[in-house]
Structure formats: C-alpha cells, structure tokens
C-alpha cells in the first residue's frame, strides 16, 4: 500500500539526512520526498511517499517519530486528503504542427506553457502523480526532452491539520 507521511521537523542541518538515513538503514521504500521550510522558519515540512505492508508502515511512522528532530507526523492517507505534484516538462516544438499539438494537449491537462523557444516549449503542470503520468503518456515520447518532478506533497482535507 502507498502511504503519504507528512512530517513537521526542526529546520536544522542534518535533519533531512536523519530521515533519509533511517530509510536506507532499515531498508524501507522511499518513492518520493519533498521538504521546505514552513511559515515558521524554525520548522520544515516534509512529505514522504512510501510503500509497504501495514506492519512496515507502522514501523516507519514509529521510527520517524523517534527521531529527535521530528516534531510531529501524520499519515495523511489514513483520511481524506489532497495530493499534488508539480512537473516541468520540456518538449520538442519545432514546427507548427508540433507546436499546435503540444499546446492543445497542455490545455486539455490544464498545464501552462511557461517558456517558448525556437525548437521547444517548457510546460508547467500540477496534479496528482497519475495525472502527470497521463500527460507524459499523451505526449509523443520521442518529443520529450526532459522532465523534472517535485515529488508529491499533500495536505489533509477539512479540520485535520499538522500544526503545533
């Protein structure tokens, strides 16, 4: 099962490596990991996507909680939640037909073309991972020059929150 674990942690040097080190030391899967400071600059918020049996995910959350730098965590997949990922994708767009096709596809997926050059477009698109995968599939693979994805971030719906 896929789980999204949200963490509030001290914004300290080394906090990220403690989390990453825990996953490699204990052999847990890590699908993606994003981290950035919050509105309180002493704290960072990390979103971690992992897969494993219920027992393993239980251990993962316990082991993460045990890290001294972790202030609070929640498995947001336990309740209703929203997840988003940002992708920047650069594609070939050297002739009118190609440019038209890419633009049309981008509109369908509610992306935006954010850079236009002679031979290529760069597109920004957000959504859950499946949507981004679908967008990639919709494009001609040979036309893709490069992609960069932020990894999943997420938040619980409604009153549930991760806050101190």
């Amino acid at each position: 099962m896929r789980h999204i674990i949200s963490l509030l942690m001290e914004n300290e040097a080394g906090a990220l490596s403690r989390v990453a080190g825990l996953f490699s030391a204990r052999g847990y899967n890590i699908e993606s990991l994003t981290v950035a400071p919050t509105e309180d600059p002493t704290m960072s918020r990390m979103t971690l996507v992992t897969t494993g049996s219920e027992d393993i995910v239980e251990q993962i959350t316990k082991q993460l909680n045990k890290l001294v730098d972790i202030v609070k965590l929640a498995d947001i997949t336990e309740g209703e939640h929203i997840e988003r990922e940002l992708m920047l994708i650069k594609v070939m767009a050297s002739n009118a037909e190609q440019r038209e096709e890419v633009k049309r596809m981008t509109d369908i997926f509610r992306g935006r073309v954010i850079d236009v050059k002679d031979a290529n477009f760069t597109i920004e698109i957000t959504g859950d991972g499946n949507k981004l995968d679908a967008f990639i599939d919709a494009l001609q693979h040979s036309d893709i020059i490069e992609t960069v994805r932020s990894g999943t971030t997420g938040i619980s719906r409604g009153a549930k929150c991760l806050h101190i």
Partner: peptide, 11 residues
C-alpha cells in the same frame, strides 16, 4: 518506553 519496539518483530 519505546513505541517502535512494540510490534516490531512480534505482533
């Protein structure tokens, strides 16, 4: 005292 010790090896 350590929650991560519980149900780690044996349920």
């Amino acid at each position: 005292i350590d929650p991560s010790s519980i149900s780690k090896n044996v349920r």
